[in-house]
Structures are given as structure tokens and as C-alpha cells.
């Protein structure tokens, strides 16, 4: 990723499927966001803290720690609990919703819906 520019918002993308993760990281990067991609749910809280993330895109079916567990991890952390989350999953019925979850997108998703959801989450 390129250097952070002033006012640039940071998004953590947690997605185990490399093609989808790559697409999300690329698309959001091209749209001007700083994006950090993670392949599993193990170090999400750490990534959110370290990068001062403004938003998390979260898959549910993840290796090591599932998306629902990650949501619990985030809600327990003082810094991370205020960061909004967009859940992007093919199994959204299995979501255990927390107050951080602002939007739920079903896979396969329309990239324009993803951009709109991210824009909305970061402007409200």
C-alpha cells in the first residue's frame, strides 16, 4: 500500500478467500482508502489498533477465529469497540449481531453496493 495521506481513512479487510480479499483491497485502494488485508480472524484487534482503523470488513467463515468471535474480540477492546464493521459473507444468517455491525452484505456482492456501504459507514 502507498503511504498514508492526510485525511485518508483506513480499512481492515478480513477475508480468507484470496481472490475476494485481493479484489476488496484493490478496489478500496483504488477508491483512495488505505487498506490492510488479513487472511484470518486471529489478529484483527491488533491490526485495528496498530493501523488506527476506521472500518472493518469482516467475513464470517474464517480460519482460526470465526467472524462472530472476531466481533466479540472487537467489542471487548476499548479502542476497537467503536470501529464500525461491515459483514460480508455468504452465510449472513449465522451472524451474531453486535452494535458495531453497521451493514451486512451477501456474497456474491455487487462492488457498487460495497463502495456505497463503505462510503456510508465512513461518513456517518
Amino acid at each position: 500500500m502507498s503511504a498514508v495521506t492526510p485525511g485518508q481513512r483506513t480499512i481492515v479487510v478480513v477475508e480468507d478467500d484470496p481472490e475476494i480479499r485481493e479484489l476488496e483491497v484493490f478496489l478500496l485502494g483504488a477508491e483512495g482508502y488505505r487498506v490492510v488485508g488479513l487472511p484470518d480472524g486471529e489478529r484483527v484487534v491488533e491490526a485495528v489498533q496498530k493501523n488506527a482503523a476506521d472500518l472493518v470488513l469482516l467475513d464470517l467463515m474464517l480460519p482460526k477465529r470465526s467472524g462472530n468471535v472476531v466481533l466479540q474480540d472487537l467489542s471487548r477492546d476499548e479502542t476497537a469497540r467503536n470501529v464500525p464493521v461491515i459483514v460480508v459473507s455468504a452465510y449472513t444468517r449465522q451472524l451474531s449481531r453486535t452494535p458495531q455491525v453497521q451493514r451486512v452484505l451477501n456474497k456474491p456482492f455487487d462492488v457498487t453496493d460495497l463502495l456505497d456501504a463503505v462510503h456510508e459507514a465512513l461518513t456517518h
Binding site: 477508491e31 483512495g32 457498487t112 463502495l115 456505497d116 463503505v118 462510503h119 456510508e120
Partner: peptide
């Protein structure tokens, strides 16, 4: 600044 693609539709 490039216009955002959000709101494309």
C-alpha cells in the same frame, strides 16, 4: 480529486 465511485448507481 477524482470523483468517488460510491453512488455509482
Amino acid at each position: 480529486p477524482a470523483p468517488t465511485l460510491a453512488g455509482y448507481k
